[in-house]
Amino acid sequence: MTAPTPTAVSPGRAGWLLVLRDLRLGLRRPGEWLQPLVFFLVVTTLFPLATDPQMSRLRDMAPGALWVAALLSSLLALELLFREDGQDGSLEQLAVSGLPLSWLLLAKTCVHWLLTGLPLVLAAPIVATALGAPYAAIPGVLAALLLGSVTLSLIGAVGAGLTLGLRRGGVLLALLVLPLAVPVLIFGARATALAIALEPMAAPMYLLGAIAVLSATLAPLAAAAAVRISLE
């Protein structure tokens, strides 16, 4: 039998197939992926109820409410990222596929963001408006949340990998990921606050972008190491 088969698949195509598979799976079970979005809407609704529904007061609170709610709902979605693939043996297959595991996990994380992060970003204009943000602020709010939610998914993948298959995994996942998400929260909420105040928001956006680039570079490697350890 001759060594490596000539019909092997390139990592790029393998990643693309994984994206297609996870998208198809997600779309066949929309309920699961929509839950974080619903959670996001409910939590942001609770803020005015718990405080003061005056628009001027809400406007001050809007960035914080938006970002804490986004952080919590992306955390809620994280448990879905590797759980099923870990249980049914798919992750094992990926780990011994001869393809770079970090790359495959990055593909999975991208789909996860498309299914859980992007809906939050798209719902953000409605929520921001309801919390008193002017229409002119919407592009800025969208941009900040777009960059931030991608980064949260990337960082979260490491935590999801580490807690894969653990009892009490959910609470532990929150404890692991939330402290690491502090910089994203700070810069994201600040960028949103500047957007709502219709001021230039370049400084926090640059910092948010820097964290996003760093996470995209390192987080998949850490996630792959974490998943391999969890599969032992």
Binding site: V158, L162, T163, L166, R167, R168, G169, L172, L176, P179, L180, V182, P183, I186, F187, L207, I211, L214, L218, A222, A225, A226, I229, S230, E232
Partner: peptide, 30 residues
Amino acid sequence: AIDDTARADRASAVLALVGVINLPIIHYSV
């Protein structure tokens, strides 16, 4: 949360390394 010592060692090591990269960023952001 991890019973097996060897696995706990490696998993927590990955977390510590991720944390130590994050620590200056957290400090700066705060």
